[in-house]
Design a protein around this nucleic acid. Structure first.
Lengths: 152, 152
DNA sequence: TATAAATTGGCACAATCTGCCAATCAGGGG
DNA sequence: CCCCTGATTGGCAGATTGTGCCAATTTATA
């Protein structure tokens, strides 16, 4: 993982579908070593995949919600159960374990407020063992990028 | 935006670099109309771009932080100033305007705790007009996907 | 400086993309 | 019921891109 690898990563975060030839030119390599580095980063799990960035509203998911959840108990069993169930919920795009007053933060995508109510009632509450839920809706997005800062 | 478009979108969220031929097969189309639909979704801004998914720790950014910020005043000038400055900070990958007690939530990536302290001191506080900051570090990530739920 | 290991560049072949044209399909009016 | 129109589709050929191999170059080490 040298400077060239980091250049490659940032270029592919900006445009994950750029051709290997353009990428090679952008990082001052010829195509074959460039492709080799990319494949290597993929094999080592540094690059975990590629994905299309889609406007949620245009797709029909107008509402983004950050949901913070605190469990009643933190024994192995209840924690495993919560995390296993959370992973299976399609509306949950992210679920992180957090420091602070709440245990988890979820990023949730739903078409409307009614769907959010149903999500809480039918997907979250049935998991059980939940002490409290704190909901924040997203009004607007000031910035959203996949490109990491230059680390050194 | 019909069922086929949604299939295409979800397939490209799972693998943004899949060949048009594989994509066409996955959604039961032949390559040319499939490519036309993709280009159309791109032109309409539904697909906003493509990007590589990278492991932040492997890249050297071990710490993910969600920072919630409340402003002292909400006049046009102070809000514009904060948002403009936030957009320019490389460590800030996301910045959303939120409902609830705090005004903004940022997703921030830094190499270590020291860098986080510097980030707050040198990037956030100098903006001015900030009433309070609430920091939550990410211990672990239970789920992280780019694939939207089937809408309907 | 000599040597070994790692990385690079170029080339040829295979796979993929791209733009065009004809064929097919869906909907509306006579 | 049929014909017409517009939209969408499928297939094809040329251009672009990816892929794997080998020799040349660079880098690191003794």
């Amino acid at each position: 993982m040298d400077t060239k690898d980091r250049q490659i990563i940032r270029a592919l975060q900006r445009d994950g579908r750029m051709t290997n030839q353009d990428l090679a030119e952008a990082v001052n390599l010829s195509p074959s070593p460039c492709l080799r580095r990319v494949r290597n980063l993929e094999a080592k799990g540094v690059i975990q995949g590629y994905s299309a960035e889609v406007d949620p509203a245009a797709y029909g998911l107008a509402i983004t919600v950050f949901v913070r959840i605190k469990l009643e108990r933190h024994n192995e069993e209840d924690v495993q159960k919560f995390e296993k169930r959370a992973r299976l919920i399609d509306e949950v795009l992210e679920c992180h374990v957090m420091t602070g007053a709440m245990d988890y933060q979820l990023r949730v995508l739903v078409p409307d407020l009614e769907a959010y109510e149903n999500f809480i009632r039918n997907r979250i509450h049935p998991i059980g063992g939940i002490a409290s839920i704190d909901t924040s809706f997203v009004y607007g997005t000031v910035k959203r990028t996949a490109v990491f800062p230059l680390s050194r």
